[in-house]
Design a protein around this nucleic acid. Structure first.
Lengths: 198, 198
DNA sequence: ATTATATTTGAATATTGATTCAATAATAAA
DNA sequence: TTTATTATTGAATCAATATTCAAATATAAT
């Protein structure tokens, strides 16, 4: 009987990530994934139900990883909300520092226009958002954050900003380094654009 | 000889906008656009070369409008860069205040994963970005803005944040009002999240 | 060496939807 | 009323690609 060659599930996932990153989910071809993974198109369907299942597997792994790390930071009691906030920003950027493909691939996963089922990672996504809210409320409670903001607005604004930066960075990692991004984002979120004394 | 019925170009554009907004460009069906516009699929191709041409028409009109308004603000000499910045934010939100569909539809237009030609509106997009840069540099020159920021980073961060908010707002205009969004964004951009005195 | 069986293949099939085009409809012109 | 011409139609055609499946391959077991 024939024995299995290598770890095909993982190879297919890695190939798929590259193809989703480069072309976007709608334009990603299963044939291309197979080609990069070094298997036949038929093999793709031996390991995954369909194209969408591959995409969901990638996204779910990412969310699980992100939420795990964000939760660890949120639950710390030895740092202020300011430090927690900076930590959340670091987690977001660090998740991609050596994986520009991943940054490009996640661009769309929580947009309505990808017609995919989101049952499982939507839960992680909502926890992801609630962690940001908790940190904000902690900051308000300890007097470090301005209570006049609407947390929903700020949360989405910061997330949208980080996503846009990650996408731009993933397109050209040499231009804007991840460290430049994180530094600017942290300072901007703390103090805004105004010069000191204004 | 048969005479033309109504303004079919415009009706098709408006129908297309709704379909692009609801389904996203890749999943938008020409048949659906025709149905909503009240014409036959063949008619779509009488007025527009193809599906992509319709999308580009919508996006180009939007960019032209936005850039025109942003340029007017940028070129004012009677207001500070701070007021200009607020004005830019207002233009962005005001462009959509009575058109949630439009906000949803533009979500993807400057993302790489939509495989569409962008020759003409890329120019407007770059001017759009350069206006933001000019306002920032004006602010630094007049001592109102912190010169330590990288303008590229801040520009993309703010744009990404506004986009995410607009998208969320377009999904549910009753939840977060446009005025709540603009107020929070302006203040946050000015002073950041920290409470006063920190 | 032969057989059994799991793995893999890649062309065939199924499906979808963009686009075309021959026919029809509607109106102006004669 | 008839003819000419423009506008419109919607099924047919075309193209693309996801998915299936019968056949082939490779190895373990006998």
């Amino acid at each position: 009987m024939r024995t299995k060659e290598g770890n095909k599930e993982q190879e297919i996932l890695e190939a798929a990530l590259r193809v989703f990153a480069e072309y976007g989910y709608p334009n990603a071809k299963v044939g291309k994934i197979a080609e990069i993974a070094g298997v036949s198109t038929g093999s793709i369907y031996v390991y995954y139900k369909n194209k969408e299942a591959i995409f969901i597997e990638i996204i779910e792994r990412l969310w699980a990883q992100l939420v795990g790390q964000l939760r660890m930071i949120e639950q710390r009691t030895d740092i202020t909300a300011i430090e927690k906030f900076d930590g959340l920003i670091d987690v977001l950027f660090d998740a991609f520092v050596d994986k520009p493909f991943l940054a490009r691939a996640i661009l769309n996963e929580f947009q309505e226009d990808i017609n995919i089922t989101k049952a499982t990672y939507l839960e992680d996504y909502h926890e992801f958002l609630s962690i940001g809210k908790k940190v904000f409320l902690d900051g308000v409670a300890e007097g470090n954050f301005n209570p006049n903001f609407n947390v929903e607005v700020i949360k989405l604004f910061v997330l949208g900003g980080v996503r846009m930066l990650l996408h731009q960075w993933a397109n050209d990692p040499q231009d804007l380094t991840i460290n430049l991004l994180r530094q600017n984002v942290k300072y901007f979120c703390r103090r805004g654009i105004l010069a000191q004394g204004r």
